[in-house]
Simulated assay, not measured.
Amino acid sequence: MARKPSKAQSEFVLFDVYYEDGARTSNRKVPSSELGGFEGDEPARAIIEAQDAEIAERSGVSRGRIKLIERAGAKAKAKAK
C-alpha cells in the first residue's frame, strides 16, 4: 500500500547552494509559497541570503557570496565548469 506524501515535503523546496569560495550547502529549505509565478525560483536567492545573514550573526562566521542556487537533486552546473 502506498504511503501518502507528508505535508512537510510540499511546504518547502530544497536547494543546493554553491558559494564563490567553492563551499557548498545542501538541502536549504525555502517555503514553496514564496516560489513560482513569473520569477520562478529567483526569490530563493534572497531568502537564502537572509538565512545566511542570520546564521552569520549568530555564529560570528560569515559565508562567501553565492555563486549558484539550484533545486536539490538537479545536476550541478557548477561541477561542469
Rank of each mutant, 00 (worst) to 15 (best):
A2I: 10
A2D: 10
A2S: 14
R3I: 09
K4F: 13
P5R: 15
P5W: 12
P5N: 12
P5L: 10
P5Y: 12
S6R: 14
K7E: 11
K7N: 13
A8L: 09
Q9V: 07
S10K: 14
S10D: 14
E11N: 14
E11Y: 14
F12D: 11
V13S: 09
F15P: 03
D16A: 02
D16W: 02
V17H: 03
Y18R: 04
E20M: 09
E20Q: 08
E20P: 00
D21E: 03
D21G: 01
D21Q: 00
A23G: 11
A23W: 11
R24V: 12
R24H: 13
S26W: 09
S26T: 07
S26L: 07
S26A: 10
N27L: 09
R28V: 08
K29A: 11
K29F: 05
V30I: 07
V30G: 03
V30A: 01
V30Y: 01
P31R: 12
S32N: 05
E34W: 13
G36A: 05
G37W: 07
F38R: 15
F38Y: 04
E39Y: 14
E42T: 06
E42D: 10
E42M: 08
A44R: 00
A44F: 00
R45A: 14
A46F: 01
A46S: 15
A46G: 08
I47W: 05
I48D: 05
E49V: 01
E49M: 02
A50Q: 09
Q51P: 00
Q51S: 09
Q51Y: 11
D52W: 01
A53S: 11
A53W: 02
A56V: 01
A56Y: 02
E57S: 15
E57I: 02
E57H: 11
S59V: 03
V61L: 09
S62K: 14
R63V: 03
K67S: 06
L68F: 15
L68T: 13
L68M: 15
I69C: 02
I69S: 01
I69P: 01
R71H: 03
R71Q: 12
A72E: 09
A72S: 15
G73R: 00
G73D: 00
A74E: 14
A74H: 08
K75F: 08
K75M: 04
A76N: 08
A76K: 08
K77F: 10
K77A: 13
K77V: 11
K77L: 12
A78D: 12
A78G: 06
K79S: 12
K81V: 14
